[in-house]
């Protein structure tokens, strides 16, 4: 039973605490939702006018900014919902089929 539990915990990537309490804050960072993606949004910075529409609507906070203010997509967490593509007023974002 204990062995089985260890195996399960290893697979789940975390301790199976009573009541599923997660003891470390910010553990969601370890969950790479980018693996879910079917379509990959691609941002063309030469067209981007930095209006920040995509940044506001992204449900996963996966649109980020460099210190210089340039927007980019964090593919570790981007699930490929394409809301950014839909909301982009200057069509600076296109979609590509994710190939792994």
């Amino acid at each position: 039973m204990a062995k089985e539990k260890n195996k399960r915990e290893k697979k789940a990537g975390q301790k199976l605490t009573l009541g599923a309490v997660i003891l470390e804050p910010g553990s969601t960072r370890n969950y790479h939702t980018g693996a879910w993606r079917v379509y990959r949004p691609v941002l063309d910075n030469s067209k981007c006018v930095s209006c920040s529409n995509c940044w506001k609507v992204c449900p996963d906070a996966a649109i980020k900014r460099t210190p210089e203010g340039k927007f980019y997509i964090d593919y570790t967490y981007c699930k490929g919902c394409l809301l950014c593509l839909n909301e982009c007023g200057v069509k600076a974002i296109v979609k590509e089929v994710e190939v792994k």
Binding site: K5, A12, A20, V21, L23, P25, S27
Partner: peptide, 24 residues
């Protein structure tokens, strides 16, 4: 042992995927 505490943040009531729900 575990309780909600702003000084020692923990997550209560998270999602459990099919790989761990049955164990819980």
């Amino acid at each position: 042992e575990h309780f909600l505490d702003v000084k020692n943040p923990k997550t209560f009531g998270p999602i459990a995927f099919p790989d761990s729900y049955m164990e819980f």
